[in-house]
Every structure is written in C-alpha cells, then in structure tokens.
Design a protein around this nucleic acid. Structure first.
Lengths: 296, 296
DNA sequence: TTGTCCAATATCGAATTAGGATTGATTGAT
DNA sequence: ATCAATCAATCCTAATTCGATATTGGACAA
C-alpha cells in the first residue's frame, strides 16, 4: 500500500466521482480507477460502491476515509515537526552549568532563548564541571557551561562565553577589607575558603598555581561545594575566598568584595559535542556569547 | 512522499545500518540510500547523520521515526478496521422497531447478535411504522421492523421475520372474557381501543377491513399510540383491543387475552434498503428470522 | 432509440524504482 | 605504516510501476 493510493482514495471519496477526482489530482481517470482497485484488493474489501452511474462509500470505505484523512494529516504534522526540529524551532535542549554561572549569564540567556524559540523545551540543571563533562560525553546533556581550563578532547567543542575578573570575598571588618584592591600575594597566610578541587580541577590548579607563583603558600581551611555555602562561610568569618566577579551579586551581610589584582580571570566556556550539529546547540551558545558583560 | 520511504526509513533507523536494513527489506543497498535521500530532500532536512562509518539519528530524525512508526501502525489498524467492518465484525447497526416487537423478537435477537459480534455497536430505537420507513429512506436507520402491509417500494427490501396470531385483550369480567375464543364478529358494537391509523396505516386498514367484511361496524372509542397504554385502557374497562399474540406477555391485572378467530395474523417484517449490501444488515435480519416462534 | 455520461479495460509510453559494479573513505588488524 | 575489510554513495542499466490515450460497455435521459 502506498500513500498515493490513500490520497487518491480520499479524493474520490470526497468527490464521489472518479473523473472529477482525477482532475483534482491532475491525472487522468484510468490510473485512478486502477489505484483504487489495487487498494481495495490489498485491503480485501470494497471501499467504494460504484454502480455505473453513481459512486458511494461503503461502511468500510467511510471508516477508512476517516482513518486515511487522519494519517495524511499526521504525515503533514510529522514533516513539519521534523523541519521545525531541524531548524531549531522545536525539540529539547538540555543545558548544564556550574553554580556560579547562575549568577551571571544563565538566567538572561535562557530567558531570551526561550522567548526566541517558544517551541523549544530548555532543560537546565546545575552540575560541577567534571560531572557536566561526563554527562556531555554520555549524551544526556547538550550544552555544558563550565570553568576552564579543561582537558582537550577531540570529541568536544569549546567556546569561550564569558570572561570576568576574580575578586576576593572578605569578611566584614577583616583587615583586607580596608584595601580598595587586594594584591594576590596579600592572601599569604590568610585562611582560604575554596570549592573542592574535584569540582573543577583545572581552575583549581590554575588558581593555586598562581598563588604559589607569587610566593604565597595557600592555606585552605575549608572546602565547600556550593557558591552560596562559600559566601556564607566567608560571612561567618571563616576565611577569605577568591570568587568570580559576578558572585558580588550575592550581597550577604557580613561579606565585602574587593578586586583581587594578580589573580587569573575566570572564564566560562560552553562545551558541546563536536559531532553535534544541532541548530539548537549552536543557537544557544551564540545567545550565551551575546550576553557577555566582559567581566567587571 | 510515499509509504515506501517511511518503511525504508524506519528500517534504517532501527538497524542504524544501510546494508542490514536493505537485507531486512529484501532490497539492495543502493535504492535504499536513494529513497532515504529522496525523503530527506522532500522534508528539507537530514534525518540520519551518516559518517562514512556510522549511521545515527538526528534529533529531527528521532522525532520523525516516532511519527513514522505511529503512522505505519495506524495504517495497519485502519486496514484491519476496514476489513472488520466489511466482514460485519465491526461498525454500527441502527435498528428501529414497532413497540409491540419489543415484546417478541427484539430482545433476544439483539442480545444474540451482540454476543456473536462484540465489535458491532447496535443502536435500537422504537418508532412507528411510518416513521421507520421514512428514517430508512433517509439513511439514518439500517433495519426497520414494522407491521405489514406496507407500500411496495423498489428501493426497499422486505423480509418476513415473524408471524403471530391476533388475539383480543378484554377487560376482566367483560362478557367476552367468558368465551374460550372470540369470533371476530362478536366485536360488533364493542367499544374498541386501537393504535392511531397513521402509526401503521396498512395493518390498520387490513384489520378494519376484515371487521367490516364480517358485517361488523368498528366502533373505536379510543386511539392510543403505545401498546402499554392500549392495554392499560383495556384494563380500565374502556374497551376491547385486537393485539398481536405476544402482547399477552403483558399480564396486567384487569386484562384477559383470548384468541380472536377470523382476525388476520399480524406479521413483523424487516425492511432494509435494497442497495444496502452491508453484511451487518443481512446478518441481523437472518438472526431475527431464526428467533421465529411462528405465532401462538 | 439515440445521445450522453461514467467507470472499466487495453495498450503503449514515461517515470520511477531496483540491481550490479564500482568508488571513496574510514577503521581495525597485521 | 600498510593492507584488508567495511560501508555508504555513485553510476549505469534493467525491470517494474505508473500514467495517458483510445476504447468499451452499461446506465440514464431526451
């Protein structure tokens, strides 16, 4: 059975006239009769009761007409859906991000992306850098927003999305808070609050390395996995913490922020699968780049 | 677009391998590639991401696979439905009947027909003989169970389904109730309760004519459209009524039934559209004939 | 009876589809 | 690093299917 036969049958059933139906289909009448006949033979029952003078639907034909119409309509929908997904106007996009990105580009990017593509379902979730890369590789995530550096991987595509200064979160009344800007080496001996190394090993080692290069022996007194926890610990006077500039938006009482001169900028990169040609993915990454406030 | 392309696409999407899919479809690999390519061109987007070594579904392809599978399944269902309707194992049968038939063959016939064909929806409704014939002609009813005689009509097919004696419904204590059987001419001068002529003109005139032939001047004191009303009026002593024998099942207090010798038998005929070749219709009529208790 | 209309049939030509051989490219094994 | 194997695409030819023209046979109306 072929769709042609369904289309022909629908035309005849609607016109109840082979010649008019043939004209509507832009074919001649004989092949129309043949195709209808073939369809009926394959089904094993007559769909059209044709006397020499009149064409009528049999009960089976009436039911099949309803079903054939529905199938043809669904075919159109299916084709439109496929095209929409291909064009990035429909489908599902799964985005993961590090917690600190929630304070910078994630809300605006997602909001504008959703507005621009109402047919697209955007699933967002926070994960650590390493978990994101694993999820990306296994295919359960489409876009990962992580802190570089990360290990080069030919299966992954990386694009810088945001760069911002690293600042220091300092307990209120702490001696460093009296400075307008804190030189990196002044962190020497200071108790530090930091995210666990495994959460973002690359950035962790970069930061520690830079500290060591200025002669500072890092003295981490507390590891905390969440940015809000880190700031909370700082507010409690546990120690000082180098954080991305956008974290200053967390204006908790008991915490002050100062530029941390000499510290490496923190970047946020979008990582995607190299083989993933999805229009959604590239569109989302492009949207994220647009929002770049270029650090503080 | 053709169903062939959908079938081919589903095979490739399931195998993720052109050669294996081609083997499953019993064709060679080149035409498979061609048809997939044609499908993609018509849709305007790629469904399968094929490197030289691996075949994968694109997001659009995954969505289209789901839809294509659904459509192919629906096609099978539609074909089965059409066949079932054609075989009389599915569909809708609309049966109308005169009220008195509800006391004889209708319940058993409908019950056995439903049991034999669980997929068929049987709609039953009571109507007068003339209303039934009108409904039959306009196509809103498939089978009419009426009391003959009816006007011959080449567009209608008539089949006798049941024949039963006409009996007399008599008020309790009425002089006629002392007889074992009531000769028709004894209805002379008796007040009669009868159905309205318009409800079944043929049978009405036949009955009145037979009464007149025996020298009786019919004396109808009350017309009642429903059989239960007629019997109720008899029970109330309003008059005597000639009724089909099966009405004796209505054993209301105050009513007695006696054979009415000389009265014409009442028949019940199934009327269908002559052009209606539906398997359901003929099966139902055949079922009704089987139940024939051949009168009392 | 004749003319008209309609679907079916027959036959031929055109388009589509399938098959075989081959290519180009990639991967895995030696 | 080389070679063999694998796989989809491409080219070309053959077979099948599909469509068009002409015609037939039947039904209805004038």
């Amino acid at each position: 059975m072929e769709l042609r036969q369904l289309r022909y049958f629908v035309a005849v059933a609607e016109e109840l006239h082979f010649r008019r139906a043939a004209a509507r289909l832009h074919i001649s009448q004989p092949p129309l009769s043949q195709q209808i006949r073939a369809l009926e033979e394959e089904l094993g029952c007559t769909l059209l009761a044709r006397t020499r003078r009149r064409v009528e639907l049999t009960p089976a034909g009436a039911a099949f007409l309803r079903d054939a119409r529905a199938m043809l309509a669904e075919l159109d929908v299916a084709a439109s859906t496929a095209r929409a997904i291909d064009a990035g106007q429909a489908g599902v996009l799964r985005v993961n991000f590090v917690g600190s990105a929630l304070l910078s580009i994630v809300p605006g990017t997602v909001q504008r992306f959703r507005r621009a593509r109402p047919g697209v379902e955007v699933e967002v979730r926070e994960r650590s850098t390493v978990e994101q890369l694993r999820a990306l590789g296994s295919g359960v995530v489409d876009v990962a927003l992580v802190r570089p550096p990360i290990e080069p991987d030919p299966a992954l595509r990386t694009e810088m999305v945001m760069r911002e200064r690293t600042i220091a979160a300092i307990p209120e009344g702490h001696p460093l808070a009296r400075l307008r800007r804190v030189p990196l080496r002044r962190l020497a001996g200071e108790p530090l609050v930091l995210f666990p190394r495994l959460q973002a090993p690359g950035y962790h080692d970069l930061l520690i390395g830079r500290l060591a290069a200025t002669g500072v022996t890092p003295h981490v007194v507390q590891y905390a996995p969440e940015m809000l926890t880190i700031i909370g610990l700082v507010a409690a006077g546990i120690g000082v913490s180098p954080v991305p500039a956008s974290v200053a938006a967390l204006a908790l009482p008991g915490v002050e922020y100062r530029p941390l001169s000499g510290a490496p900028d923190t970047e946020l990169v979008a990582v995607t699968r190299a083989e993933d040609e999805s229009a959604l993915v590239s569109a989302f990454v492009a949207e994220a780049r647009l929002e770049n406030p270029a650090g503080s």
